[in-house]
Amino acid sequence: MIRFQRLVKRFGTRTILKGLSFEIQEGEILFVLGTSGTGKSVLLKNIVGLLRPDEGEIWIDGQEVSRLSEEQYFPIRKKCGMVFQHPALFDSLTVFENVAFGLRKHYRLPEDEIRTRVRECLALVNLTGIEQKMPAEISYGMQKRVSLARTVAVEPRILLFDEPTTGLDPVTTNAVNQLIFDLSRKLKTTSIVVSHDMHCALAIADRIIVLDQGQIVAQGTPEELKACEVPLVKDFLSEALEAGLEEGKI
């Protein structure tokens, strides 16, 4: 379980997160929606300790983590896997080495087992036969899927997605959304997805939080959000409707 208590994050004189408090239950898929610059990515980076809050607390599995040192944070990061907005693949390593990076770091596995695990993870994101390619030799969409495979390879219990489908074609977008859903249900991972995509959120989220200027303006299940009267939520809903996607269940 993850719990935020009065989380505040500032950059200089700008306050990005203004006292956020909410909880995420184990195995839950939580979508965090909001316009650009509202602090969605900042929220994710606070969970994995890439940024530290200026005020407030973050509790992960009963442990307060916001004041931990960089080294004390390593075990927490083993629990959390983050898929970045950019693929963030190590461009001097092959696709295979990228996916194997976390496995080599955390587990003393025989090479055969690492190879099998890497293939399994790449197959999970519908990629085969590209193990020896360099990241620069594959498309952006494939890079994003390799990034997802790399994160999943170490079997994190908490998955954080920073706009996982941005820049992907509709088919791959659906595949990634399906994967988020499957992982959450089969492996019981807790997933937090930062996105602009209300259609996808309505389809697979257990709960949705809408952020505006660093504060929660609405939260609830997809059904509850559909009935919400907050203007920003209505804007998101109408955009999904206009695109003719609102009824789509994956």
């Binding site: 994995v48 960089e70 075990p75 970045f84 950019h86 963030a88 990076f101 976390g102 770091k105 955390h106």
Partner: peptide, 18 residues
């Protein structure tokens, strides 16, 4: 610098490495 701005260094940290 490129590794930093493309979040590769953050990815290393997130994978539990220094």
């Amino acid at each position: 610098g490129t590794m930093r701005v493309t979040e590769q260094i953050d990815a290393v940290r997130c994978l539990g490495a220094n």
